[in-house]
């Protein structure tokens, strides 16, 4: 049966780039760095495209953010093979925390009918892991988080979640919200034709009002969390000297490596 899949994506600063925070409102200065489609979201897009190829259907990309970079993130996903995009663009969203964005995305998602809503389980900038479960909560849908190997059949979705000892197989009814884990797959490169086709694909822009977003629940003021302070990470290296006074340096070294889970 054809599937209707939404994938929520975010633009993030290039993983390799040096990031800056704005001194004023303590949000990330997104203009100072090259931004990319969140790599974990790329894996969610790939998972969605694989589901589409196996079942037929349609993949819709949903992204909230300012004009240029959000549209670039959507275009990238469209050039990989997604079918259409929805861009939630409203200045009132600036500074929203994870729950604020999850609420706003949920409002957008309510406007469509989706069998599956996929997200990257986390973004490489904020790493809160909160957005997929919060979207599920707002939509009152089941949430399978940190998953890969997503498959569907007869109104059900199954997925694997890795554990320390193996993996769990999770099953839920659809619609459902899934957080796709880092490393779930190797996202395809967009093809030349995909890139050229991307700009012809439908891209709908919604304002907060269009999505019936309650302004008091988003933006810096609507956020339940607040960044009080920030500072650069200390680059001082930890130095542990293993002495061999008692002839047991090898044991200490092995213990250390074990504690750090290197061995």
């Amino acid at each position: 049966m054809p599937l209707s899949i939404a994938v929520c994506v975010k633009r993030v600063p290039d993983t390799a780039a040096e990031k800056k925070l704005d001194d004023g409102d303590k949000t990330l200065d997104r203009d100072s760095v090259e931004s990319i489609l969140n790599p974990v979201d790329e894996m969610a897009v790939e998972e969605a495209l694989k589901l589409k190829e196996a079942n037929e259907g349609e993949v819709t990309i949903v992204c909230a953010g300012p004009e240029g970079a959000a549209q670039q993130a959507i275009r990238k996903a469209l050039s990989m093979g997604a079918d259409k995009g929805v861009h939630l663009k409203d200045d009132s969203l600036h500074g929203s925390d994870a729950q604020g964005i999850a609420y706003a995305l949920a409002q957008v998602l309510k406007k469509g009918e989706y069998d599956l809503i996929l997200c990257g389980a986390e973004s490489t900038d904020a790493r809160t892991n909160l957005v997929p479960p919060a979207i599920a909560e707002h939509l009152n849908l089941p949430n399978l988080n940190f998953v890969k190997n997503v498959e569907t059949s007869d109104g059900k979705v199954t997925a694997h979640r890795e554990t320390d000892k193996g993996h769990d197989v999770l099953e839920s009814s659809t619609p459902a919200v899934l957080g796709v884990v880092w490393g779930a797959n190797e996202p395809r490169y967009p093809s030349f034709k995909g890139i050229m086709a991307a700009k012809q694909k439908p891209l709908e822009t919604l304002s907060a009002a269009d999505a019936e977003i309650d302004a008091s629940k988003v933006g810096l003021d609507g956020s339940k969390t607040e960044v009080l302070e920030f500072g650069a990470r200390s680059t001082e290296r930890q130095k542990n000297v293993v002495d061999n006074k008692e002839g047991d340096a090898h044991v200490k070294l092995a213990d250390f490596l074990q504690q750090q889970k290197f061995i």
């Binding site: 275009r75 990238k76 050039s79 490169y189 967009p190 030349f192 890139i195 050229m196 991307a198 700009k199």
Partner: peptide, 14 residues
């Protein structure tokens, strides 16, 4: 152009 930028980015990633 926007397409060329996307194309260049893709090849660079590849």
């Amino acid at each position: 152009s926007e397409d060329e930028r996307a194309l260049r980015k893709m090849v660079r990633e590849l």
